[in-house]
Design a protein around this nucleic acid. Structure first.
Lengths: 253, 253
DNA sequence: CCAACCCGCATTGGATACATTCTAGACGTG
DNA sequence: CACGTCTAGAATGTATCCAATGCGGGTTGG
């Protein structure tokens, strides 16, 4: 327990990678649970914490200057969100995305987001469209990638919420979150043009055209991510010890 | 702490209702968390624990002879599954099904189960069909409602798993679980005839006919459940103190 | 030199205890 | 009688401590 930052992945210890996020988030979150939850989630989604990396409760507790209890609850919450995986008495690891999982998630996203679009578009009011257009502009014009990504998520959330289906929207949000990491990877050259076509179809009230745009785009993105995963398969990232192979084939649980 | 069974709903204390399930489940589950999770979940789904009933952590901890920590983690897991709802500093309650929620869940089930059927039917092997037919017969011929229900769930699980989409199947299982309580209510007179048509379509390899059967059946069931909810709205079940009205309109969270 | 066994350590799972925050009901007052 | 306040109780959030499990290194025998 004396070694403070022995676990490395991209050369820096977990504490070093998470440090900045902690200080900016502290005092914004009411409880230690929320602090850990927010920081670890953004760390995973931003790629700071790599897929397959092991998350030790005590190490995180030390980093966040708290006890293991809030850490455990935060990790369990992340497990429900799909971002980490746990096995009894073996601990938590960041869920690794494999090609099959990515394909299935994008297939589900096409199904669910398509349904949300079909339900929402006929119900759009002028106020909805104004809000959505503002988010669209923020997303397209922002130079900061983080801001652009955040605006994009709010854009979709705002649009889909019009459907009046909270459960559907909740499922979509979780699926998007699960693959958000992958969007950091160099897959989104033609994202801007898709968003333009998609938004124009929304503006025109043409749900089917929007769904069609969305479908072909997601299919393409899934292929790109799969290719990226295959290409990066050879070069091992992180030390082999930290690269943590699951014991069983796929404990989906 | 001295009052062992002060909380009643159908006349028996929570401990009395959960007791048998505990003893039969203990030693099968690895951790205390799994024990509480399994017992409370089956208690909710079987109707032993009523919608709207309050679940106090300390009471459950006492019942399961454990501490509050595994109880809390189990309740959080059930919250994620949608079976219980929590509000800060007010505790956990069994999620009450309202008509809108039921409608949305059945809409989602039509979407997701329809997709699973379309994916699975073309892939069915002879072995798959044999297994599925065995489960179908068990479901139709069993006199014990519990056995019939269990067989039905395994029937659908076996069928949908053929699709090779574990995430899709997982979502379906959770949605079915959420409304499983409602199926205890007198809504399924014509269930048998639907299952027959559905199974025959599966046997014929006609996915679209199966999806069409499923769609109209689920739409009808949703209407029946909604009517049942409206009719039973007047007569309060349980003592008024236990009947726990949500404070806000719909904290879906 | 290699393999199998065994012991020790690291890590997770769980229990108890305490501080804090909120709710709900009773009480008093305008 | 209505409304605000106050207080007792409970539920939550967290820390610390103990038990159980799994993994790896070391040792010993062939």
């Amino acid at each position: 327990m004396s070694r403070s930052g022995a676990e490395m992945a991209d050369g820096r210890s977990l504490a070093e990678r998470l440090g900045p996020s902690i200080e900016s988030t502290r005092d914004q979150e009411a409880t230690a649970l929320d602090l850990v939850l927010t920081c670890v989630r953004s760390g995973i989604m931003s790629g700071l914490i790599e897929p397959g990396e092991r998350l030790r409760q005590e190490e995180l507790a030390e980093i966040f200057a708290t006890s293991r209890i809030p850490v455990r609850e935060a990790l369990r919450a992340l497990e429900y969100e799909g971002l980490v995986t746990s096995e009894p008495h073996r601990g938590f690891t960041v869920t690794a995305l494999d090609g099959d999982l990515v394909d299935e998630i994008y297939e589900l996203r096409i199904l669910l987001e398509g349904q949300a679009v079909r339900l929402a578009v006929p119900l759009l009011t002028d106020e909805d469209l104004r809000d959505i257009e503002a988010l669209y502009r923020e997303m397209q014009e922002s130079d900061d990638p983080d801001r652009a990504l955040a605006a994009r998520e709010r854009f979709y959330l705002r649009l889909y919420s019009v459907s009046g289906r909270p459960r559907l929207v909740g499922l979509i949000v979780r699926l998007r979150q699960e693959v958000a990491r992958a969007l950091r990877w160099p897959t989104l050259q033609h994202g801007a043009s898709f968003h333009q076509h998609f938004f124009e179809a929304i503006q025109d009230g043409d749900a089917e055209r929007a769904v069609s745009q969305l479908t072909t785009h997601y299919q393409r993105v899934a292929v790109l991510i799969r290719r990226y995963l295959r290409e990066s398969e050879g070069r091992t990232r992180g030390t082999p010890q930290e690269r943590w192979l699951p014991r069983s084939e796929s404990a989906d649980r």
